[in-house]
Computed example of a mutant assay.
Amino acid sequence: MIQSIKNISCGAIAAALILLSAAASAQAPFPNRNITLVVPFAAGSGTDTTTRIIARELGTALGVGTVIENKAGASGSLAASFVARSAPDGYTLMVSTNTPHSANPYLLKVMSYDPIKDFTPIARTGDLPFMLVINPEVPAKSVAELIALAKKDPGKYSYASGSSAAIVSGATFARLAGIDLLHVPYKSSPPALTDLMAGRTTMMFIDVLTGLPHVKAGALKALAVTTKQKSALLPELPTMDETVKGFDITSWQGYFGPANMPKDVVTRLNAEIRKIVERPEIKAQLAERGMEAFSGTPEQFDAFLKDQLKVWEKLIADAGIEKQ
């Protein structure tokens, strides 16, 4: 009986210590423990690579560790759902793009999260330009020549896709150029690139980070960037809009937390992220990995997000892409 009382006392003391520790942690200034950054794509992707650069600097600035957690799958929905249901304390953040937060609502029949209501916008960190690449055996040196080939042989040429941006870009290109292209979808970009380089498909819209090494190696030929303005990363490439009027598709990146985050935590995170991406050496590192880095306030990011939903809704509707 005495032993049982001792055991109960020890257990009560241990429980009390845990509660006291948790209370102390909750009352301590933010941040006081590691921050997890959830990435909706696989390790090695453009988003993952650029996140690791910013995460390293963010951890140093805040004096805590940063943990990258890759939750790839369902076009970013797995990661988005996970973060949306996390505690809104600033310790679980999502590094998202146009795929989960702009395109998915119009591409997926079933959505497990709301891109606006379930998240707190923290900071936009920049754009990840896409470019049109073709197999080197295709006898075209420009977008105009590629269109001419496709018009000469309707249905002969195909475009591979490994992301929402690639799907929408390919369908938009076909519509605006008035050409008949076969869509060959893949679960991710690597296998799509493999088939493109092997000549099993004709063309693909791919992010600069993933596609540029193959262009430099001569395994692919780059024809244009998808943004309406020329890319500072690839000033030698024309824009799609120069040949296909109205073509303007931007892949963006930004940091989110769950809905209802404390304003002071959002302000602190935004301030540190903005300082990081505005540093010349960080801009240079991100540029080497295909990202044009810049930032702004949470309010500016929120307005941008709402506008992008309209942009992608129209892009997807105009391209005639049905929800899957």
Results as ranks from 00 to 15, higher is better:
3 Q>C: 12
271 A>E: 12
312 W>A: 03
93 L>D: 01
305 L>R: 08
301 F>M: 14
134 I>N: 05
233 L>D: 02
138 V>M: 06
11 G>I: 10
198 A>G: 14
213 P>H: 07
181 L>F: 05
249 I>S: 02
21 S>C: 14
220 L>Q: 05
82 F>I: 08
209 L>A: 15
76 G>H: 01
314 K>C: 09
285 Q>T: 12
9 S>L: 15
37 L>P: 02
277 V>L: 07
73 G>V: 03
214 H>S: 14
140 A>C: 09
300 Q>D: 11
201 T>V: 10
107 L>W: 01
232 A>S: 15
254 G>K: 01
254 G>Q: 02
238 P>H: 04
27 Q>C: 11
83 V>E: 00
57 E>L: 10
35 I>Q: 02
199 G>C: 09
174 A>N: 03
248 D>V: 09
323 K>T: 13
186 Y>V: 08
230 K>Y: 08
98 N>M: 05
59 G>S: 07
79 A>E: 00
310 K>V: 15
1 M>H: 15
119 F>M: 02
281 E>F: 13
250 T>N: 11
189 S>G: 08
43 A>P: 13
67 V>P: 00
106 Y>Q: 07
225 V>R: 00
135 N>D: 10
276 I>Y: 02
23 A>Q: 12
319 A>N: 04
308 Q>W: 04
125 T>A: 04
208 V>D: 03
92 T>M: 05
307 D>F: 12
303 A>V: 15
312 W>M: 04
102 S>T: 09
284 A>E: 13
25 S>P: 05
91 Y>A: 06
152 K>M: 10
9 S>D: 10
184 V>T: 11
143 V>M: 01
214 H>M: 13
29 P>G: 07
44 G>K: 10
75 S>F: 06
66 T>L: 06
313 E>H: 14
255 Y>P: 02
244 V>A: 03
315 L>N: 11
179 I>K: 06
68 I>A: 03
10 C>D: 13
111 M>A: 13
243 T>W: 04
103 A>G: 05
25 S>R: 09
272 E>D: 10
94 M>F: 10
198 A>L: 13
16 A>Q: 12
222 A>T: 08
295 S>V: 07
46 G>S: 13
286 L>T: 05
83 V>A: 01
156 K>F: 07
231 S>Y: 05
224 A>F: 05
64 V>K: 00
155 G>R: 07
38 V>S: 01
232 A>I: 15
32 N>D: 09
42 A>E: 07
155 G>W: 04
284 A>L: 12
189 S>D: 10
309 L>Y: 06
294 F>W: 14
177 A>P: 07
252 W>M: 10
265 V>P: 04
269 L>F: 07
268 R>S: 10
54 I>T: 09
177 A>D: 03
116 I>F: 02
219 A>G: 10
77 S>I: 08
152 K>L: 13
27 Q>K: 13
191 P>S: 06
59 G>R: 04
306 K>A: 08
21 S>K: 13
96 S>C: 08
51 T>N: 11
202 T>F: 01
24 A>H: 14
288 E>N: 14
272 E>T: 12
116 I>Y: 00
310 K>I: 14
264 D>R: 10
12 A>V: 15
69 E>V: 11
116 I>H: 01
308 Q>S: 10
129 P>T: 07
251 S>D: 08
219 A>R: 15
201 T>M: 04
37 L>S: 04
190 P>G: 08
170 G>P: 04
38 V>N: 03
190 P>W: 00
83 V>F: 01
211 G>D: 05
52 R>K: 15
292 E>W: 04
15 A>C: 14
86 S>C: 11
